[in-house]
């Protein structure tokens, strides 16, 4: 079975649904028709653009170009991680934590998958490396930002409890241990939910895509299982790095809690 290629007219028929949405919006005065139109146009332009960029990168087949694309993706993800939490660290610390957690977790899981499980020739083939990095980044970004948000939010709320422990002679590590644990747990929840729901509540996107593209369902399932393992591994790493790095940033050599490092 070969993939069924979509013609522009096929997309145009589906776009009719969008027009229907817009008409309903006008008719019921929901006033989202402008947003629908803008979002749809943005989506088409962004996806077509990334399609062309990927085509160029694939045809270049140059490791530095592939690496550059992955680095840009990581940096954009790092910015997202840094910007999302309600409480932020002063200066560039948030950005550094975002970049190190997301970058490290993605790098390790992508390289592991490419060199052991998927094994394209060569292993850094952009056809595999870039999409894989993209999927993992999406999940890892989510985990890192949830963990960071959880820790930075709770450290201010729990100030009295943390300082009570410090004053009694506990180390900073001990005093914040439960906050770090909760932050990591918070970061890993989405991927745990995703794994439990996979196949029952949801048919994961990657698997659905591969089945639509003509792959045997069992082959698609194997890919999905591999991906889920990679995602949970990457998410755990990213959440742990983000939580521990934020915790470390909030103290000094004298085991103090430095809340003035939060904005």
């Amino acid at each position: 079975m070969t993939p069924i290629s979509l013609a522009p007219t096929d997309l145009a028929i589906a776009a009719a649904l969008l027009v229907l949405d817009a008409l309903v919006s006008l008719w019921l005065n929901i006033r989202v028709h402008r947003q629908i139109a803008i979002a749809a146009v943005r989506m088409v332009i962004q996806l077509v653009a990334i399609g062309y960029i990927l085509k160029i990168i694939f045809s270049l087949d140059s490791p530095p170009a592939t690496l550059l694309v992955v680095i840009v993706m990581v940096l954009v993800a790092a910015r997202e991680v840094a910007a999302r939490p309600e409480h932020r660290l002063r200066g560039v610390a948030n950005l550094l934590i975002g970049a190190s957690s997301v970058g490290f977790a993605t790098l390790v899981t992508v390289v592991l998958a490419l060199t052991t499980a998927i094994r394209p020739q060569p292993w850094y083939d952009p056809h595999y490396a870039i999409p894989l990095a993209g999927i993992i980044l999406g999940s890892v970004l989510n985990s890192a930002s949830l963990a960071l948000d959880s820790f930075l939010g709770s450290v201010g709320r729990e100030r009295a409890a943390i300082e009570a422990r410090l004053a009694l002679g506990d180390t900073y590590q001990t005093a914040i241990a439960s906050l770090v644990r909760n932050a990591i747990r918070r970061g890993m929840l989405p991927v745990i939910n995703q794994m439990s729901a996979a196949g029952i509540v949801t048919l994961p996107g990657i698997m659905t895509g591969q089945i639509l593209a003509g792959l045997d369902p069992l082959e698609a399932v194997k890919y999905q299982i591999l991906l889920m393992f990679l995602l949970s591994g990457g998410s755990g790493m990213a959440a742990a790095i983000a939580a521990y790095a934020a915790a470390w940033r909030m103290t000094d050599k004298r085991d103090r809690l430095l809340l003035d490092r939060l904005v």
């Binding site: 009295a160 410090l166 085991d255």
Partner: peptide, 20 residues
């Protein structure tokens, strides 16, 4: 001496107590 060791000898009790 390390700060935790100091604080076990010179112990501060805040006006608002903290509970963990």
């Amino acid at each position: 001496m390390p700060a935790p060791q100091w604080r076990r000898r010179v112990t501060y009790l805040a006006a608002d107590s903290g509970w963990w």
